[in-house]
Design a protein around this nucleic acid. Structure first.
Length: 424
RNA sequence: GGAGGAGUGACCGAGCGGCUGAAGGUGACGGUCUUGAAAACCGUUGUACCGAAAGGUACCGGGGGUUCGAAUCCCUCCUCCUCCGCCA
């Protein structure tokens, strides 16, 4: 959520921001509602002040005097009720609109309509060329009995799968490696609840907007999270931290659930776009300081790069363009990892910086050394998401004989083995 | 799932229709004293909104109601605790 005071001062900034992000929100209506609310509240306040003054005198009055004073009060109450009634209509309208106003993007964000206009920042790692006909991850997965898509679909519908045998082992190895790596960098490991109240979904910016993308447990009014960002970022919701506590750095491993509504027919092959996956996610809750936020953004980006480098995967970092940014994001860097079967880089990570946007919705504040109360800043990034990352691992590490070499950093997590080989 | 009990400021805890934004204590901060520290003593110590300010308004788990007036009474939701049942 944005600061209404900033909006009053500079509506054009927010109109331009919304336009660049391709969000449709009526700022003028919002400002109009705002001024109506302000004047109604001012009048209401004056009435209540008067009421309170009269109310205090009542116990001192003679019974006869009381009658006329009570009559006077009655008139005030009528006015009060009318104003309250007006507010009751306007306020929810205002609140709903406020939730829709996008955070304007940083000046460094390239203007663009969609992900095709994201700007490549830099590349790392060598893209492997094969001297044999490489298999894709599904062919490898079947041959090595690591992936069973058919039975996943049989039991749970499209975009569902089983990881089996070495597939399950490799998946766990990747997750555990990433988790241990982040713990070694000082992040606090968390196991988090995956069913979240609407409040937490709204607070992190997913609602309103992503209801269609979310599995909602309507009977219990709970939502299956699409990322551990939600419980981690909302962890201190409605709390007041102290400056000394900051920055808070969390890392969590969790399952993630996404309906992929609107993606019908897109990326239907293999393990790329699926309804359920596991992810190690990093979140920073930091000070209300844009320069520090920018530093933290670099930090979470380089954490993930270090993981990819350790795994020996070639990737590129892209500066996500305005039209591809979410409502709350100030700036976002995606990391895309080379996937031979797609003959392209595919998104594996997404590093976002929000400034106050989420903290305002979450009512997440801290007390500064100067005893002022301000909103925190929040950021998050993927550390690793599997099985999507198994696509480049399996495909890039495959050998001509059909086996897969295990990346060295994963070997300790796989009983010291060097290869995944077909069973005899 | 059934039966009871409870939610007050950073924390503990009093209040149970007007004198209460809220006693008392703890903690924190400032000061006196001291070579320094401790102890003791004195003082300060909530958030949001409107306002240039003075000041005003709201908030005692959330929402709604009764009343001229609610932290105090009623309804509802949430949370926690105790006992019983069930269970990985």
């Amino acid at each position: 959520m944005i600061d209404i005071k900033l909006l009053r001062e500079n509506p054009q900034l927010f109109k331009d921001g919304a336009k660049a992000k391709r969000f449709d929100v009526n700022i003028d209506t919002l400002l109009d509602l705002d001024s109506k609310i302000l004047s109604a509240r001012q009048m209401l306040q004056d009435i209540v002040t008067e009421k309170n003054r009269i109310g205090k005198e009542i116990p001192k009055l003679q019974p006869l005097e009381k009658q006329s004073v009570l009559a006077e009060l009655g008139k005030l109450k009528e006015k009060e009720a009318a104003l309250n009634d007006e507010l009751k209509h306007i306020q929810p309208e205002f609140d709903a609109l406020m939730l829709e106003v996008p955070q304007p993007p940083s000046p460094e964000v390239p203007l663009g309509l969609d992900d095709t206009e994201n700007v490549e920042w830099y590349k790392r790692g060598e893209v492997r060329t094969f001297d044999f006909e490489p298999k894709d991850h599904m062919q490898l997965g079947q041959a090595l009995d690591m992936i069973d898509m058919e039975r996943g679909v049989k039991l749970a519908g499209t975009r569902n799968y089983f990881l089996k045998g070495d597939g399950a082992i490799l998946h766990r190895a990747v997750m555990n490696f990433a988790m241990d790596f982040m713990i070694s960098r000082g992040y606090t490991p968390m196991i988090v609840p995956l069913l979240m109240r609407n409040e937490a979904m709204r607070g992190t910016g997913y609602f309103p907007g992503s209801e269609e993308q979310t599995y909602q447990m309507e009977r219990d009014e709970l939502n299956l999270v699409g990322t551990a960002e939600v419980p981690l970022t909302a962890y201190y919701m409605n709390e007041m931290l102290t400056e000394k506590q900051l920055p808070v750095k969390f890392v969590a491993m969790s399952s993630c659930f996404r309906r992929e509504a609107g993606a019908a027919g897109k990326d239907t092959y293999g393990l790329y776009r699926i309804h359920q996956f596991d992810k190690v996610e990093q979140v920073i809750i930091g000070e209300n300081d844009e320069q520090k936020s920018i530093q933290y953004h670099q930090e979470i980006l380089s954490n993930s790069e270090a993981v990819l480098q350790a795994l020996g995967l070639p990737y590129r970092v892209v500066n996500v363009c305005s039209g591809d940014l979410g409502r709350g994001q100030v700036q976002k860097f995606d990391i895309e990892t080379w996937m031979p079967s797609r003959k392209s880089y595919g998104e594996t990570h997404s590093a976002s910086r929000f400034y106050e946007f989420q903290a305002r919705r979450l009512n997440l504040k801290y007390k500064t050394e100067q005893k002022k109360n301000v909103f925190c800043h929040t950021l998050n990034n993927t550390v690793i998401a599997s099985p999507r990352v198994l696509i480049p691992i399996m495909e890039l590490y495959q050998n001509a004989d059909g086996s897969i070499t295990i990346p060295t950093v994963l070997r300790p997590y796989m009983g010291g083995r060097e290869r995944i080989e077909p069973k005899q």
